[in-house]
Amino acid sequence: MFEARLVQGNLLKKVVDAVKDLVTDANFDCSSSGFTLQAMDNSHVSLVSLSLRSDGFEHFRCDRNMSMGMSLGNLAKILKCAGNDDIVTMKAADDGDTVTFMFESPKEDRVSDFELKLMDIDSEHLGIPDTDYAATVTLPAAEYQRICRDLSSIGDTVVISATKDGVKFSSSGDVGTANITVRQNTTADKKEEQVSIDLKEPVALTFALRYLNSFAKATPLASHVSLSMARDLPVMVDYQISDMGHLRFYLAPKIED
């Protein structure tokens, strides 16, 4: 039996809304340590990795490790029926072929349940290696979203260059060229405006803005986002979900041919 009760139910809605355009169907893996998802996007250029720890749930029970294949589009439709402040409980029998979502309003005066058919999705689950990145930039998630949106009106790709002075996002196209530089400001009076750069060595990589924009759909999940880069390796775009875990995206850089 798998049963998990999430008081901040809208967190699940935000997670699914953040990944449903990148990944169509995916396996959610449940184990005693938590609820995870790892999937390549449909074009195998980016990887999504979700991890929600069991201790972040009000109640979490997983008698046997199980993998629940779901259409993320259908899951998003079901979660749209949940109130923003609803408590969400997921339930699935060990050998069942459905998963039930129960939504309870805070005043417990409205309870609804939705049953979703599970799918058989074969996906090789590979470990994500720890990488010692050349640079990790942490900036407000809204700032990152705005940079990606602004630059995607200029070009299809962005060069992200991290140096000790700051991180520069450059793009060019028919319209012209654009450079946006964000400097480290760990002394910003408001925490949510802080930008920090952990630099081991300068690094500059080129990425497709389409994917970076898609990752920014996770903005509602966290105040900040971290971009970790190393030469010729996928960038890790990391949204920390407070007290629960993280939603991470990996995107391969464009290798200059």
Partner: peptide, 14 residues
């Protein structure tokens, strides 16, 4: 080894 496996998944990008 694990890193190779991981990178291989991004095969469409390289």
């Amino acid at each position: 080894k694990q890193a190779q496996e991981f990178l291989k998944r991004f095969y469409n990008a390289y």
